[in-house]
């Protein structure tokens, strides 16, 4: 059994609670042991890292220290959290005076970060640590005929300085995964684009304008659902879809699924277990892909 310290982040604990739930169910089915870091804080999103860098590094390195204390790699499910943690870890390695200052601050809790925690997003765990072959063996319900559009979001692909191991202009990790799950992935305009979440709390118009054409493109190219590895992208694409729809002047009705939910369907979990009913845009079109053991497709 592979064990991880699990950091869900703020979104998966609130507006995307279904992601947290689905991650736990899928991890259990794939025999991943998750120890949730109960006392972990927010990583600071884009706001804290801009206006209070020292506070930002301290919060992130504290999360890494908590995982290190348990001697576990850290599993994340949010793009922005992943990048924040990776950036902080890099700053810790590069700037000894920052490392000393943060550890002095963490000492009040009896923590001391040594710099050994490995950070892994759920997408990478599926592809690189479980591996395509092992995952394929778990697929009891190949999602044949389901066309999905991958929406990667920014912070799992850019900046290139942090993600040298992927082609930031043509990440294909989700497409690879989709193939393992038996479904088709379509090409469209939004794969590598931004959802605008980080300005949405004070100016929704940016997010609405940025995403409309991409959801439309996914629909035109035949996607029955869009799949994203990031709860922040999900929030924009799902929660704001009514407004986005109004802005492009067309009915979009595009179900947006979290990555673990798509995996869950293919390994035989039910839509209810994956909380597919907790989305704002109904996921009814996905119901017909649910696992029915009596009549295997």
């Amino acid at each position: 059994m592979m064990r991880y310290a699990y950091y869900p982040g703020c979104s998966a604990k609130s507006t995307c609670a279904e992601l947290n739930h689905a991650t736990h169910r899928v991890a259990a089915s794939l025999e991943l042991g998750l120890t949730e870091l109960e006392s972990a804080t927010c990583t600071g999103a884009r706001e804290l890292r801009a206006i209070d860098p020292i506070g930002f590094y301290s919060l992130n390195l504290r999360i890494l220290a908590l995982a290190e204390q348990d001697q576990l790699p850290l599993l994340t499910v949010c793009n922005t959290c992943t990048l924040n943690l990776l950036d902080s870890n890099a700053a810790f390695q590069e700037d000894p005076s920052l490392a000393r200052a943060v550890n002095k601050c963490l000492a009040a809790e009896g923590l001391c970060y040594k710099g050994t925690t490995r950070i892994s997003h759920f997408l990478w765990v599926l592809l690189d640590e479980i591996g395509e072959d092992n995952l394929r063996r778990r697929v009891v319900n190949p999602l044949t005929d389901l066309s999905v559009a991958a929406f990667y979001g920014c912070h799992l692909t850019r900046p290139p300085i942090r993600y040298g191991f992927v082609d930031s202009r043509n990440n294909i990790a989700i497409e690879k995964l989709a193939r393992v799950l038996g479904c088709k992935s379509i090409d469209y305009s939004g794969r590598m684009e931004c959802c605008g979440f980080h300005t949405a709390a004070h100016n929704e118009a940016i997010a609405i304008k940025l995403t409309g054409k991409h959801i439309e493109s996914a629909k035109v190219n035949g996607a029955k659902a869009m799949v994203t590895p990031c709860p922040l992208c999900h929030t924009v694409l799902d929660t704001l879809q009514r407004e986005i729809s109004k802005d492009v002047g067309k009915k979009l009705d595009m179900p947006i699924v979290h990555l673990p939910q798509l995996v869950g369907l293919a390994i035989g979990l039910s839509p209810e277990e994956l909380r597919l009913d907790r989305h704002v845009v109904p996921t009814t079109p996905l119901k017909s892909y649910a696992y029915r053991p009596e009549k295997r497709r």
């Binding site: 920014c154 912070h155 850019r158 900046p159 290139p160 930031s168 931004c194 980080h198 300005t199």
Partner: peptide, 10 residues
């Protein structure tokens, strides 16, 4: 109003 998409850095 910067959305932090890193397209500029790319």
């Amino acid at each position: 109003n910067c959305v932090s998409c890193y397209k500029c850095e790319e």
